[in-house]
Amino acid sequence: MKLKGRAHRFGDAVNTDYIISGRYKFKIQDPKLLARHVMEDLRPDFYKSIKKGDFLVAGKNFGCGSSREQAPLAIKYAGISAVIAKSFARIFFRNAINLGLLPIECDTSKIKEGDVLDIDVDKGLVINKTRKKEIDIRPLPDFMSRIIKDGGVLKHFIKHSGFKINA
């Protein structure tokens, strides 16, 4: 799998309240409408700056806080194809995989706002075209890659009539 896009740069500890505020997640059910409020408290009107396929790039502990699946859902429907962070909080990490939104763990310190990135998932590399740097990705366990390839956990569950942990 290969992805191309621009980096939207955020800091450490981006919690799920910042990704999608409780003000919206409790009353909006349509994910397309939810996506308009993604990251709103950190960057008003952020969704307008996203081009389909772009990446969210952050520091450590991305997605900490609540278990709301609306967080990766809003990111996905805003057109983001992968979240690249130094580390993820565990519920968000699992939710992202379940929705087929790629969580990429790597050293993000050399990625700046607007950098053009290529991601080669099979080679395990983020290639920063703007800064001409290659960054190694921490590989996903096979089981989780399979869920992503199946298009998310619900499709995975239907396809295999359950969870397929071992190949």
Binding site: E69, I91, R94, L99, V153, L154, F157, G162, F163
Partner: peptide, 15 residues
């Protein structure tokens, strides 16, 4: 804590 899809699959399959 789990997300909603995980919870749904737990409820459906018991696991």
């Amino acid at each position: 804590g789990f997300g909603s899809a995980d919870l749904a699959l737990t409820l459906a399959s018991g696991r």
